[in-house]
Write a protein that binds this DNA or RNA. Structure first.
Length: 375
DNA sequence: ATCCGGTCAC
DNA sequence: GTGACTGGAT
């Protein structure tokens, strides 16, 4: 309840540095209809069953001249479910994702500066009772279900083949390497073209770190042609093979951080490789379709605002704050296919979309002049 | 002519 | 943030 939250946070400054402290607060569901003043104050303590209890884990430590306050995590008491979303405040920055082995990635808000303590107090009240940022978007399950239905009716290119199938008949280690290579080649390239390139590499025995390392770059280049950016990719492939050989005994890195060190592997592919090669879901694989559609649906926003996310990475972080982990892997093929057939970048086909009534962007984009070219 | 299922360097 | 890398498709 907000009263105890206020009281607790009020004596925060007296708590010794470095001690982890736990605060409890009751959070009112955003679905409840109530007056703003009630919202602002949160539950008055009558303890309705619709009000889940939250805990905030807070750590304080001294950083140079100021005190840094870190709200470690938020979790719902009743279900035990952890939330990693922390509320809107001014003058703060999100820390980088911290991933705990196989568990849910967590995120913390770092507050630094003189006003950190008072900011945190405001934040908790605002976040838990008013703006209620822990709630997933309204109707997201209906939207997802609708998209699934549309996807099973239509046939999108993504259905036919993807790099997740690369080398499915190979021994584990070679299969992982094949997945990595396939990811490397597949950016900005149609699956079919990519698949052909992988087949040619395989037929020439060039789908292991060892073979690629000793092969001629020109040979690789000609085999992977015509995947997009084949010159650069051939060069990256050589470098990656060498790294895999020297640092990982010919296998591929098994962590997100190490995958990102490989040339040609960025966040999108690193998450894909973790998902597919290691079956270890560290994050959502966000490509341009997932990015675009998440924003159209109003599923993501820049931290603490209602603005659209600007990059796929921002989208990934925003999505991961509320989307249940079971959906992290399937969301990509689902939205990619949807984005290829219906929710296209240009002139989305809202008229045939069965979830347009739940989409804040439906029919909003300039119905572009397919028949009225203005120049 | 313009659009890609991305990454990297300025 | 912006553009280069690349060539095929619409």
């Amino acid at each position: 309840m907000s009263v105890s939250l206020l009281r607790n946070t009020a004596f925060l400054p007296s708590i010794p540095l470095g001690i982890q402290t736990i605060y409890s607060a009751k959070m009112r569901s955003s679905l409840n209809q109530e007056t703003p003043s009630q919202k602002n104050l949160g539950c008055d303590g009558s303890g309705g069953s619709s009000v889940p209890e939250l805990r905030v884990f807070i750590r304080r430590k001294r950083v140079k001249k100021t005190v840094e306050v870190i709200a470690k995590e938020v979790k719902e008491e009743s279900s035990g479910k952890k939330f990693v979303r922390l509320p809107e405040i001014e003058d703060f920055s999100y820390s980088k994702d911290v991933t705990h082995s196989q568990s849910t990635p967590s995120k913390s808000v770092h507050l630094t500066g003189e006003k950190a303590l008072s900011q945190l107090t405001q934040t908790e009240i605002k976040g838990f009772s008013l703006s209620d940022p822990l709630q997933p978007p309204l109707n997201w399950e209906k939207v997802l279900e609708g998209i699934r239905k549309m996807r099973s009716a239509e046939d999108a290119p993504v259905d036919s083949m993807g790099c997740e199938k690369a080398g499915s008949s190979l021994p584990a280690k070679e299969r992982r390497f094949a997945v990595l290579v396939s990811s490397l080649l597949s950016s900005q390239t149609k699956d079919q073209v990519n698949h052909g390139a992988i087949q040619r590499l395989l037929q020439n025995g060039l789908l292991t770190a060892d073979a690629i390392d000793s092969a001629d770059e020109e040979t690789i280049k000609s085999l992977i042609y015509p995947v997009g950016f084949y010159t650069r990719k051939a060069s990256n492939l050589k470098k990656v093979a060498k790294i895999c050989l020297s640092k990982y005994n010919g296998d591929i890195p098994n962590s997100l951080e190490e995958l990102l060190l490989l040339p040609g592997i960025g966040p999108k592919m690193a998450h894909l490789v973790m998902n597919v090669a290691w079956e270890n879901v560290q994050g959502i694989c966000v490509d341009t379709h997932v990015h675009r559609i998440s924003n159209r649906l109003g599923w993501v926003s820049r931290p603490g605002t209602k603005q659209k996310t600007k990059t796929p990475e921002e989208t990934r972080e925003s999505l991961q704050l509320w989307l249940p982990k079971e959906e992290w892997v399937p969301i990509n093929p689902l939205l990619v296919g949807f984005g290829q057939t219906i929710c296209t970048p240009l002139r989305p086909r809202c008229a045939i979309c069965t979830v347009s009534d739940l989409c804040p962007s439906a029919f909003k984009e300039a119905a572009s002049p397919s028949s009225t070219p203005k120049k």
